[in-house]
């Protein structure tokens, strides 16, 4: 029997959360592939991790900060160079609602 962790409907929902549109064929294909991958991820379920701290980062660096001083940053023209749509000194965005 095929592993079942996620339905097509759920894939559609998560893709929406990630802001990625999917075609109907892709939804079907991804659902199948995700179920295989999640079945593989299940492997770690059985490991005993009671009392084990998570490793977010391998380094023991904490709160790396610099002095709060103004330093030169990218000029506007440079920052806009790669924007597909712009107007004057602004990036042209789609409407929000």
């Amino acid at each position: 029997m095929k592993p079942h962790h996620l339905s097509k409907k759920e894939v559609e929902h998560v893709a929406w959360l990630a802001h990625i549109e999917l075609s109907d064929e892709e939804k079907t294909l991804f659902t199948e592939q995700f179920n295989d991958i999640l079945e593989f991820f299940k492997k770690i379920d059985m490991i005993d991790t009671k009392g084990v701290e998570p490793t977010y980062h391998v380094l023991d660096l904490k709160n790396v900060s610099r002095k709060d001083e103004t330093i030169p940053s990218l000029p506007t023209e440079e920052a806009l160079k790669n924007a597909p749509k712009k107007e004057k000194k602004f990036i042209k965005a789609p409407r929000i609602v």
Partner: peptide, 24 residues
């Protein structure tokens, strides 16, 4: 609107493996 354009940009702009990993 913004969400629709954003989702379409990311559908066409990203290949299948990248989309798979972001969604999962």
């Amino acid at each position: 609107n913004w969400a629709t354009v954003y989702s379409q940009n990311r559908r066409i702009g990203f290949g299948a493996e990248v989309r798979r990993r972001i969604i999962l």
